[in-house]
């Protein structure tokens, strides 16, 4: 399957990636290979087969509405690249 330059640019915008021409060319080839691979499934006759979202036949995995997590903020904030006053610091963002 051929991927157009426009598609690569568009996917780049969605993924917030700035790709060099070289990287774009490589991405184009990788994406095309992946789609060809998955495209094999199109050779199967799936008429009358219900779409599925899961390969396991398990339903209704749920929990009761009971608080199980205590305040573990200090540990959680260790995951933050930067923290201030108990909050995660991110680049300036306007709502």
């Amino acid at each position: 399957m051929t991927i157009t330059d426009e598609t690569i640019d568009y996917v780049g915008i969605l993924a917030k990636l700035e790709l060099s021409d070289e990287e774009k060319a490589r991405a184009k080839k990788d994406m095309s290979d992946m789609l060809d691979y998955v495209g094999k499934l199109n050779e199967l006759d799936t008429d009358g087969v219900e779409p599925m979202s899961h390969t396991f036949s398990i339903n209704n995995v749920m929990r009761e509405d009971v608080v199980t997590n205590g305040d573990d903020r200090e540990n959680m904030l260790l995951n933050a690249p930067e923290a201030k006053d108990g909050a995660y610091v991110v680049p300036k963002t306007f709502n």
Binding site: V67, D71, R73, M76
Partner: peptide, 22 residues
């Protein structure tokens, strides 16, 4: 509800910043 939709963190208001996180 008492807890969040996908984890056992409390939904209570008025906690410290990031107190109810996992």
């Amino acid at each position: 509800t008492k807890t969040k939709i996908f984890c056992g963190c409390s939904t209570a208001f008025g906690g410290e910043v990031n107190e109810h996180t996992c």
